[in-house]
Amino acid sequence: MASVKLYTIIFVALAAITTVQFTLEIVLIEEAYWLTFGIVMGLSTIKTLAVAGWYMHMLEEPRAITYIAMAGVLGVIALTAGAAYSMT
């Protein structure tokens, strides 16, 4: 379990990243949709890793816990990517 200070820093960082995502929607999406897409989804992934790693204490758990979650994520990617590609 991390300190209250670290939890607070993570919260502030998560809120800041969210603000960046919102700002991108205003300033960049019209000019460069797919660049915005990549950055916004990448930032959501970073936020997810922060929540899972510190708030859910995944960093402190046995690595096998991470593998369970990763198995689920891989399943979703396989299903979504495979299904979407199959129709191209």
Binding site: G72, V73, T80
Partner: peptide, 27 residues
């Protein structure tokens, strides 16, 4: 899973399933 309790492992495995559930909905 030596250092996790039964309930915590149960919760994580449930979440593993929930990742597929919500992932499939979003997918």
């Amino acid at each position: 899973f030596e250092n996790v309790t039964n309930t915590k492992l149960g919760m994580w495995t449930f979440l593993g399933s929930d990742i597929i559930l919500f992932g499939a909905l979003i997918g």
